[in-house]
Amino acid sequence: MRIVVLVKAVPIVGNERLGDGFRVDRGSGLEPNGNDEYVLEAALKLTEAHGGEVTLLTMGPAAAAEALRKGLAMGATRAVHVSDEALAGSCARATAEVLAAALRRLEYDLAFAGADTSDGQGGIVAAAIAARLGLPYLSYAAHIEPGADGATVRVHRLSPAGYDVLEAPMPALVMGTQVLGEPRYPSLRGIMQARGKETLTWSLADLGIDPARVGAAAATTRVLTAAPPPPRAGATIIRDAPDVAVERIVDFLAARSLV
């Protein structure tokens, strides 16, 4: 089973800051997006159980290589890094276009993507890629397994009441959640092995994409202002016995038409 895992290199949580033009500063200190690590873990488990290989795919600046190295150390087979100066400041639409073009160049049975990213909170790029490529799209996966016939993938999709069981022919794109299971820590051996693994770097020219369609100049959205939020009002702390506390909480919510 050949699995491509889409990885976004994001600023280390807590260290995010905006740079020029209110764009997220991704010049250094990047790590794999947390949700992407969960789907990478699921991909590694699948290939360990059923055979195959895992390819990481990212689009980002040179510093994104740090995130790829961690993924390789966790056990991925190789990495593909789409990197081009013209990509700086790309919006979600351009990102989906670029990643879709890169996926067209790869051979795979499944493509995995994590749910929302910690910096952009979007959660829409995977669906956009699936639509562009005409791939079956199975989102919010809590469990992923190959079908009995080897030509399909079966996913438990989270729902408000539990989950739905979906099945689709491969190739397909699966967007996974943290319910898939905790990602592993890279072992020392894995870190050492990662240094010798293949990392391909593709430019926009390699993908046949016009630079005018991507980057800050072509961005379809823009940040107008950015400022720390106003301080919150003080919290109401209830220290009463449970029965009284419940009553007070219900009253509190009812006063705000929340129950």
Binding site: A96, G122, G123, S139, L158
Partner: peptide
């Protein structure tokens, strides 16, 4: 919502529209 994000992603690609999230 989960379904809404899926719909927005599809629409973004099908209609070539930008998305502002959250």
């Amino acid at each position: 919502s989960p379904d809404g994000k899926d719909v927005a992603g599809f629409l973004s690609a099908l209609l070539e529209l930008p998305v502002l999230v959250s």
